[in-house]
Design a protein around this nucleic acid. Structure first.
Lengths: 197, 197
DNA sequence: AAGGTAGCAGACAGGTCTGTCTGTCTTCAA
DNA sequence: TTGAAGACAGACAGACCTGTCTGCTACCTT
């Protein structure tokens, strides 16, 4: 119906986007290892050669998938924290509310980086991108803790990262979105103890 | 040198034990999906037919591997809690110290059930055994919380499970055994708040 | 002494996975 | 109008994986 005429560059970009969308759905739902190239290109409606010219290898596609997840998570977190809360201290606790939004979304399967790291060979692309993600997560809490005037921002950030990890695992493994509440309660206590009003 | 003469039953049991030991090392170190049958039988020094007569299939071996992990974890936890602490309240916090023992062991790669669940198909043996493990973990904290006289034992147990999950993930993903301290500190605060002296 | 049992070694079949390559078609640029 | 670029469809090679099957050997039981 909407048979747009596309330039080669547009066609290329569209194929790449479809591949990334297909990879995101399949890799997240069933795991990076379990999903083969053929499944991805079939869902994307794309030729195999297109995948290899766009991403070079399956590893390249996996890297792009994880980097896109990282970017989307960071962007969403920044946007929601900005929109919902006014102070760094509120945001330290609010991050768990934002995290909890995903727990009730259909197809929630826990943290993509945890899942991808499970069977990943050491030194591979998964390990590298997971490191980047962990760095982002620590900095998110560390920067907010500093802005909120925490005495020991590093220690507070570590505690909150641990709660963030635990909330994701509990919500996933127990299929129980109320982990968000439990994590937020403990986060509020830890933040209140570390940051005097 | 110690060439013991073994009866067929002993030989069978020994082969099964070697298979389980080899599966434990390889599956935990590299992931259930990444390790093939050939690697396992090679390390165990066992014929392929022996594996299939003892466990029926790779899934059967995976189930036995996870059940053995579960049993070993539960046994160690019970033993250490018994030996180290006297009261249920101390044990609620002490569980994190026991968990932390594994963080510094060589080859620590996080919770085996989290890793195995990452790429597991729904309804498979991994999901079932993981459920059993999660039930054990909840009951561990729930029973101790009740014995300690907690008002809301279920809620307290959920918080402690969340901390337990978070400690394991943080220690693994960040290669940072100090997650044990962070988790134990928060656990002590939560326990003290929920259980009046 | 003889048969049965069970592990060992390895070949084999059938399937799947990644990555390459060939050939065709469409679109843009010169 | 002609050539270059790139997507598409699909065959193909080479590797790997699970699971079965065939001999062979060693030991226990009868």
């Amino acid at each position: 119906m909407s048979e747009k005429v596309l330039s080669p560059r547009e066609r290329s970009a569209a194929a790449r986007a479809r591949l990334l969308a297909a990879a995101d759905e399949l890799f997240y739902a069933e795991g990076v290892q379990s999903v083969g190239i053929d499944r991805v290109i079939e869902r994307a409606g794309v030729a195999k050669a297109t995948l290899y010219s766009a991403f070079g290898s399956k590893d390249g596609l996996v890297r792009a998938y994880l980097q896109a997840r990282h970017a989307a998570t960071a962007e969403r977190m920044a946007r929601e924290l900005e929109a919902r809360y006014d102070t760094p201290k509120e945001r330290l606790v609010g991050a768990f509310e934002v995290q909890g939004l995903s727990f009730t979304e259909p197809g929630f399967r826990g943290c993509a980086f945890v899942s991808a790291s499970a069977d990943a060979p050491p030194g591979g692309v998964v390990e590298q991108t997971a490191q980047d993600y962990r760095t982002w997560l620590h900095e998110l809490f560390f920067d907010l803790a500093q802005q909120a005037g925490a005495q020991d921002a590093k220690s507070l950030a570590q505690q909150l990262v641990l709660l963030y990890d635990g909330a994701g695992i509990s919500a996933w493994m127990d299929r129980n979105p109320s982990a968000e509440t439990a994590a937020r309660t403990m986060a509020a206590a830890v933040v209140d103890a570390a940051i005097p009003d």
